[in-house]
Amino acid sequence: MPVQAIKSVATSRNGVGAFILQCRRLDFHYCDWAGSSRGMNKLLTSSLLPQQVTTKYPATEFRISSRPNKHPILKAYYINGNTKAICVRNLEPAQIIQKAELLLQNSGIKNKKIRGKNVVSQNESVRGIWSPLHGGLKNV
């Protein structure tokens, strides 16, 4: 047998063909009694939520549930299995929407410092790798 073949799996490149929003579910938790939920309750009862959040992100499942005697939070579930939560106590509706968008547009990966690391590519270098054995050889 001349050539054998190695089984592997092609890796995804999100956004090259289809783009899949990584936030699959976002929970709004509120409390009916506590004052820290005032902004959250105002948001949930107003038309701001469908206008500015839910219709803009149809790829995410939204859930609203009460969490009595606790601060209001936003909790996002991502495709990679991670969850991220933000406490939105004492925030105004506009600020809560900002926080919701932060979670919705997030990739779900743990935050990392970038700090000028090298760019890593899956493609081969177009220019090739410099070799000390090719060209410019000097005879001593």
């Binding site: 001349p2 054998q4 190695i6 890796t11 995804s12 490149r13 063909g17």
Partner: peptide, 27 residues
Amino acid sequence: YKDHFMSRQLNMASLFQFRTPTKDLSK
């Protein structure tokens, strides 16, 4: 299909496994 399957990355050159490359080449 194009959006979800052909957009995936596969390095074709990494799938080969040769046993006797020099012999194969001369053949």
